[in-house]
Computed example of a mutant assay.
Amino acid sequence: MRGDIRGWMAIGVIGLAVLAAILIGQQKPDSPEHSTNSDAANGASAVMLYASAMGHPTHQVTGSFEISEANTMLFVFTPTSPYTSEEADATARWVHDGGVIVYASEQGDPELDTALTVNRFARPVPSDSADANGPFLDGVRSVAGGTFALPFGLGARQVAVLRSGGLPIAYEERFGRGLVIALADPLELCNGYLEKADNGRFLADLLGLVPAGAPVVFDEYHHGLTASDITPAAWILTPWGAALLWLIVAIFFGLLLRGRRFGPLVPRPAEASRLDAEWAVAVGELLRRAGARAVTLGVLARASERAVAMQTGLPVEPRERFWQSLWQRAPDIASDLDSAERALYGSEKSEKDLLAAAQRLHGIAYPVSEEGRRRPRQ
């Protein structure tokens, strides 16, 4: 018992070590999703700290996607877990009721783009320097971002606030009682870019769109694992999938090396041989239940003909030649066999006549000598 416990403990320690090694090895000073939990240059932790320093209560949306506070600002940075249609519609309703959303994403989320009527062009434009011309951007003349961004196609109610090469890469839109701020380049708000150009003032002006002391919320729910992420490819292409896969492999090989069975051995039952009579009875019962009387008669007749052919040394096929040869070589047997078959086919409605005809055929096909008949049974 003690040995079993030690074995399981060893397997558990190995699995945890493999899991820790994978997770540590995959941690990089990089945050392509611009998470507010990351201090990397392309992370957004400074945005949350900046909002808190300006007197706004801040918290992250994790665990479940729920936004309930009124007069709240929501930051959405590059979702890596896609929005469902229900989540996107709920976000649009929340904005329509008075919320302010800052939606910063390079490619965008299909469902959220549809719900917020965001239209993106496929041809990128440089985003390392963008001109500011928004109505609320006090003291902001230019904003520095990454290398390229996909510009927006503006609707009638959408007003450009940042342009690059004459094309809008950020806009604002009155959405019901709320406001949508869409950015094609999230790096303009990331840690390593706030000191460039007028990026810091740009962030301050964004936070000034809500009243002082209004909560500021950051969507980290769509940067983590959600139900829609659990796909077959995720077991290979994601860190958590690779970690679980390696853990399963470690446990499997641990059990394999210990030679542990998953249960007691179940002996295979011995196969009992059946008598020929049992097979005959089973086939007969099957034919009787199927109502295959004509088939049964044909089987009996053909079996008798094959047995007679073996006795006389005649080929059973073709059947016409067999009968011609049998009448010439053994006319008595041919006469008896022909008479028995006629009696067999004439007994279609009587079980008693059928049994008598079958016994007669059996006697012709497998004749018993007089010596065999006189031999006493033992």
Rank of each mutant, 00 (worst) to 15 (best):
P264D: 07
E111H: 13
S81M: 05
F252G: 11
I230S: 12
A130D: 02
T84D: 07
A170R: 03
L326R: 07
H222S: 05
G7V: 00
K196L: 15
V100T: 14
P32W: 02
Q378W: 04
I248G: 14
L287N: 06
V368F: 02
P186G: 06
I169D: 05
V159C: 01
G134I: 03
P79Y: 07
L326C: 03
P239I: 08
R319D: 10
F202W: 09
M54G: 02
N71M: 11
T78P: 01
R289E: 15
T91W: 06
G313R: 03
H96L: 09
A290V: 05
A115V: 01
F252M: 06
A309C: 11
Q60L: 09
R360Y: 00
R261L: 08
E106Q: 14
D131V: 12
F75D: 07
V159F: 11
L49A: 15
R123M: 13
P110L: 12
L167W: 09
R177T: 05
A90R: 13
G263L: 03
P367L: 04
V161I: 15
V95G: 06
T296R: 15
R258Y: 05
Q60M: 14
A307F: 05
L344S: 08
L19S: 15
I24Y: 11
S68P: 01
E370I: 08
D4P: 00
K196Q: 15
G43W: 07
F218A: 02
F322N: 05
E320S: 13
S369E: 06
P186Q: 02
E320L: 10
T72V: 13
T78F: 11
G15M: 14
I251Q: 06
A204N: 13
P168A: 15
A92N: 09
G3M: 02
A160I: 07
S85D: 14
P318E: 02
G192Q: 04
E371V: 10
G43P: 10
A294N: 14
A227Y: 08
A277I: 13
G254N: 02
G176W: 04
G99N: 09
L337S: 01
S228W: 11
S335P: 00
L16D: 00
F65I: 03
V76D: 08
S129A: 12
R2I: 12
P82E: 12
K352Y: 10
